[in-house]
Simulated assay, not measured.
Amino acid sequence: MARAVVLRRLSFGPRTRAQLHEAILAKDVPADVADAVLDRFVEVGLVDDADFAREWVRVRHRDKGLSRRALADEMRRKGVPTDDAEEALSALDGDDERAAAEALVARKLPASRGLDYPKRVNRLMGMLARKGYGPGLAGEVVRQALAGEGEDDQP
């Protein structure tokens, strides 16, 4: 039963060991059986939290523009061990984050045209905050983008 649960879950895409463990326990399988089955899946390479974390960071940063902080939160919720998450996040540097934030703002900037300056700033800053970017970087990126459109800081 535990093996079938794992195979079914993996057929939809990679999962962390913690996610699979939780799914097995939800089927009232004893914890020691769940651990044994998962140990075997890890041994043969079908479950690998480090690979999961690297791919998660690569895809979510590229497709969703998520910051390191947001990615770390997601991986923690998925049960990725801290060491694996930190290693995966080390592939991103400050330039990567800045470039992602700039791309997000560039994509949303046209939708804010016609609004007054404070509303534009609030909307763009809010969008970046939801993606996990801190106020310092978000403010710089938003001000730079608006200045590029000819809008200067206004009180």
Rank of each mutant, 00 (worst) to 15 (best):
A50I: 01
V37S: 02
R17F: 07
A23F: 02
L38P: 05
E22S: 12
A34P: 02
T16N: 08
P14W: 03
E43C: 00
V33T: 14
I24F: 00
P14V: 07
G45Y: 02
A50F: 00
A18L: 05
I24S: 04
E22Y: 11
V42R: 15
G45E: 11
A18S: 13
F41D: 01
A26H: 11
L38D: 06
A34Q: 04
E22G: 06
V44D: 15
F12I: 02
R17A: 09
D28R: 13
Q19V: 05
E22Q: 14
V42Q: 11
V29A: 08
R40Y: 14
A34G: 07
D48S: 13
V37E: 11
A50Q: 12
R17D: 03
D49V: 02
A34K: 02
P30L: 10
A26Y: 01
A23C: 05
V33D: 09
A18T: 11
S11M: 05
V44N: 02
I24R: 04
V29R: 05
L25E: 13
A18G: 03
V37N: 04
V29L: 02
D39I: 05
E43S: 12
R17P: 00
G45S: 07
E22F: 11
V37I: 14
A26S: 14
L20Y: 09
F41G: 10
G13S: 06
L25K: 06
E22C: 04
L38K: 07
D49G: 06
V33Y: 03
L25W: 02
R15S: 13
R40A: 13
G13C: 07
F12A: 15
H21S: 13
V42P: 00
R17T: 14
V37F: 07
L46V: 00
A26N: 14
L38H: 05
E43F: 10
P14M: 15
L10A: 07
V42C: 08
T16I: 10
H21W: 07
E43P: 00
Q19A: 14
